[in-house]
């Protein structure tokens, strides 16, 4: 029984989410092979070979895989997947985009966003925005699964010495093409991997006021997130959104500033180790999940907190 893990990458560097996925694969048990499908992605393959616990790295280097278009990548994974008991990918936008297509090509059900491995065929996953946890068992011949990174501690990025094998496969399906992308630039740590996250909501009032949070975040080495209200109001870009429909985070410390705590937001952060809420509304639902709550005006509290650190 071997497990195929699909590497998350941008052709230059291995995505951190891959390490959490390998951790989930280790809990399932079996030989772990990592597939790097991309274009000019030799550096990624080398990084994947060093990951602890990986026994083989398969590299499919083809121009058709440059942007991970599911129409081109899914047939490759489905074909390879036939030789494995499990096919795993991180529950990132790339993994979520590609893997269900793979599952359908293999004619098997997929299990999304597992947070726990009970046994090689039984997994736990949150449903209803994290308000219930389902234990599901799969009898599929090939188990196709996406892994929620925050549910598994990452394996070490160094220490492994896997063999690298090149695959000749790959072609362009010719039904889709990459036009361009607009990536948000940030020097702060990545939201889903940060140890500390400071998030702002509607209570920030406007985008300029987020500067207060950036200053606080820089003191803490934190990433900055936002609620849907703040994104919809145009204060910050959508890739900063934490919640059921945004990113799922589970940092050591989550500081919610001016966020009421709607169900959809809590779905994205309630597994954080320590939650601090700063809100002027004493009745805000966020205080029900906060370990430490401070009732008051964020425009007084945040600068004071920044100075105190």
């Amino acid at each position: 029984m071997a497990i195929l893990v699909i590497a998350e990458h941008n052709n230059a560097a291995l995505g951190a989410a891959t390490l959490n996925t390998v951790a989930a694969a280790q809990q399932i048990g079996g030989d772990i092979h990592v597939l790097v499908a991309g274009s000019a992605c030799a550096a990624v393959a080398e990084a994947a070979a060093k990951v602890a616990g990986v026994s083989k790295v398969l590299v499919a280097d083809n121009a058709a895989f440059a942007h991970q278009l599911p129409e081109n990548v899914a047939p490759l994974i489905a074909e390879l997947g036939k030789g494995y008991s499990h096919v795993l990918a991180a529950a990132t936008t790339t993994g979520k985009n590609v893997l269900p297509r793979v599952a359908a090509l293999l004619d098997v059900d997929q299990i999304s966003e597992i947070v726990k491995v009970e046994s090689p065929d039984t997994f736990k996953r949150p449903i209803y925005a994290g308000n219930a946890i389902a234990t599901v068992q799969s009898s599929a011949a090939i188990k196709v699964i996406t892994v929620r990174g925050t549910g598994f501690d990452p394996v070490a990025a160094e220490g492994g010495a896997a063999a690298i094998e090149a695959l000749a496969a790959g072609s362009d399906a010719g039904i889709s093409s990459f036009v361009g992308e607009e990536l948000a630039k940030s020097e702060r740590p990545e939201l889903t991997a940060a140890k500390v996250v400071v998030s702002g909501g509607r209570g920030m009032q406007n985008g300029e006021n987020f500067a207060l949070l950036y200053k606080l975040a820089d003191k803490l080495g934190a990433a900055v997130g936002a609620s849907r209200a703040a994104v919809d109001a145009g204060f910050v870009p959508n890739d900063m959104q934490v919640g059921q429909t945004g990113k799922i985070v589970a940092p050591q410390l989550y500081i919610a500033v001016g966020i009421s705590g709607a169900i959809q937001h809590l779905a994205g952060m309630k597994d954080s180790k320590v939650i601090v809420a700063i809100n002027k509304d004493e009745e805000a639902p966020i205080f029900q999940v906060a370990d430490y709550g401070l009732v008051g005006d964020l425009f007084d509290i945040v600068p004071e907190l920044e100075k105190a650190l």
Binding site: A132, I275, Y292
Partner: peptide
Amino acid sequence: STVKVLKVEAPAARSAGIKVGSVAELV
């Protein structure tokens, strides 16, 4: 379907937090 739901449970509840009175206390 090849997927069977064995059980559905409530997520682990967070223990009740406290309200602090000042920034100094929070830090």
